[in-house]
Computed example of a mutant assay.
Amino acid sequence: MAVASLPSSNFTAKSSPLCFGFHKPFLPSSYANFGSLKNNRNGGIQITVCKADPPSSSSLSFRYLDADDFRHPLDKQNTLLLRTIPGLNEIGKALLGSIAEQVLVLENIGTSVLVSENQLSELHQLMVQSAEALKIEAPDLYVRQSPVPNAYTLAINGKKPFVVVHTSLIELLSRKELQAVLAHELGHLKCDHGVWLTVANFLTLGAYTIPGVGGMIAQRLEEQLFRWLRAAELTCDRAALLVVQDPKVVISVLMKLAGGCPSLADQLNVDAFLEQARSYDKASASPVGWYIRNAQTRQLSHPLPVLRAREIDEWSRSQDYKSLMQRATRTNS
C-alpha cells in the first residue's frame, strides 16, 4: 500500500489503479457505506465493520522477528541502490517540511474516525493482534469515508505513524482479509518503508517543481523509485501472510481489489485467480510479451495483482516461510 499526499491537485501520486495502492486518500465521499447496519435487540443500531470469519481462540506470536527474516530479495537489493543516490535524504527532508506534515496529519484527524478500544473495537483488536505478531508497536488507525477501496500508511519526521483504511475496503473484505491488509501496512513500518514511501512520492512529485533541473531529476529517479516501491509491496505481502497464516486469504484480497465488489465477493475463486496468474506468465514469455510486460510494469508503483498472487503462493511453499512458521507459537487471544 502507499502513503498519503497533500490534498491538492498538484500533489497526486502515481500508482497502480488498484489495491494496496494510492488513490487520492483525501477525497471524502458520501457514496461509501461504513460496514453494514442492523437493529439490535434494544432498538439501537449495531455496526458490523467487516464480514465475519470463523472465530479463533488464539493468535500468532514470534519470540523474535526481524524485518530481514521476511524481506523480499528485490526489496533488499533496491533499498541498497536507493541509498546510494546522493542527497536523497536531504531532498526528502526538505520536501517533508513542517507545513506538509501538519496538513497531512490534521487532514486525517479532522475528516476520519480514530479507532480505539472504545471506537470500532473490533478493528482495534485486529490491529493490536497484527502488531503483536510482527513485534512492532501498533500505530494509530483511522477509518475514512471513500468509495475507493484502499489503505495507506503515513510516517514522517519521527512522529507516531498512522494507518488509514477506506470504508469501501472494509465493505469488500472479510475479517481475516482485513487483518491481512492491516498486517501489510504494518509490514511497511516493520521494514522502515513508511518514511521512504512518503519521501519517494513527494520526491517524484516535488522534483518536477524545481526550475530548470526538476524534470530531469524526477525522470532519473522515477524508474528506480518505482522499482523499489514494487519490491517493498512484495515484502509487505509476506508480512500479511505471516499474520494470517493462509496464502489464500492474502491472494483473495488481491483478487477482490483487482475485480471484486461486495455483491460478487463470495463468487470469486482464488484457485482460478492463481491459474490466471500462470496464464499471464505464459502469455508474456515471448520476446514481445516480455517487452510489453516490462513496459506495463515500469509505469506502476505497485506490482500487477496476478504477479503478487503468484509471488505469495510461491513463498508460502518455500522453506524460508516454513522455517519462520516453525518459530511461531500460539497464544490465547
Results as ranks from 00 to 15, higher is better:
Lys38Thr: 15
Ala328Arg: 13
Thr329Leu: 06
Lys160Ala: 12
Ala272Arg: 15
Asn10Cys: 09
Leu225Lys: 05
Leu88Val: 14
Thr329Gly: 12
Ile109Met: 02
Leu241Tyr: 07
Val244Tyr: 05
Leu27Lys: 07
Gly215Ile: 11
Arg83Pro: 05
Val143Gln: 03
Met255Asn: 05
Gly259Arg: 07
Asn108Phe: 15
Cys191Phe: 09
Leu27Phe: 10
Lys76His: 11
Pro262Tyr: 01
Asp246Asn: 14
Leu307Trp: 11
Tyr321Asp: 04
Ser57Glu: 08
Phe20Thr: 08
Ala218Arg: 00
Leu81Arg: 09
Thr235Lys: 02
Ser318Met: 08
Pro28Tyr: 02
His72Met: 00
Glu223Pro: 08
Leu234Gln: 06
Ser16Met: 01
Ala258Ile: 03
Thr111Ala: 01
Ala231Leu: 03
Arg293Phe: 08
Trp228Pro: 02
Ile312Gly: 01
Phe34Met: 11
Asn150Pro: 07
Asn39Tyr: 14
Leu65Asp: 13
Gln102Trp: 14
Arg175Cys: 07
Asp192Thr: 13
Arg308Phe: 01
Tyr142Asp: 00
Arg317Glu: 13
Ala138Lys: 03
Tyr152His: 12
Arg310His: 12
Ala151Arg: 01
Met127Gly: 07
Ser58Gln: 11
His302Ala: 03
Phe34Gln: 08
Trp196Ala: 12
Ala240Tyr: 05
Ala258Glu: 04
Ala283Met: 14
Asn10Tyr: 14
Lys14Ser: 15
Asp320Leu: 12
Lys51Ser: 02
Leu241Asp: 02
Leu307Arg: 09
Gly43Leu: 00
Arg308Leu: 01
Ser98Trp: 15
Asp320Pro: 12
Asp140Arg: 14
Gln296Asp: 10
Tyr142Cys: 03
Val143Ser: 02
Asp320Lys: 15
Val213Glu: 09
Ser8Asn: 10
Asn332Glu: 10
Phe11Tyr: 14
Ser29Asn: 00
Leu221Glu: 05
Ser15Phe: 04
Ala218Ser: 07
Ile210Thr: 13
Gln245Tyr: 10
Asp313Asn: 12
Asn269Gln: 09
Ile251Asp: 00
Asp237Thr: 11
Glu275Met: 04
His188Glu: 05
Leu96Gly: 10
Ala100Phe: 08
Tyr152Val: 09
Arg227Trp: 08
Ile136Trp: 04
Ala283Asp: 12
Glu101Asp: 12
Ala138Trp: 07
Asn294Ala: 04
Thr153Tyr: 00
Leu81Trp: 04
Gly21Asp: 02
Ala258Phe: 07
Trp228Asn: 04
Val199His: 07
Thr297Gly: 02
Thr12Arg: 04
Tyr208Ile: 15
Leu96Ile: 15
Glu107Lys: 10
Arg317Tyr: 11
Ser30Cys: 05
His124Thr: 09
Arg83Asp: 06
Pro7Leu: 01
Trp196Tyr: 14
Gly97Gln: 04
Tyr152Leu: 06
Ile217Met: 06
Val250Ala: 00
Gln46Glu: 07
Met325His: 12
Phe20Met: 05
Arg330Gln: 11
Asp281Val: 14
Gln125His: 11
Val163Asp: 01
Arg41Ser: 06
Pro287Cys: 03
Leu82Phe: 11
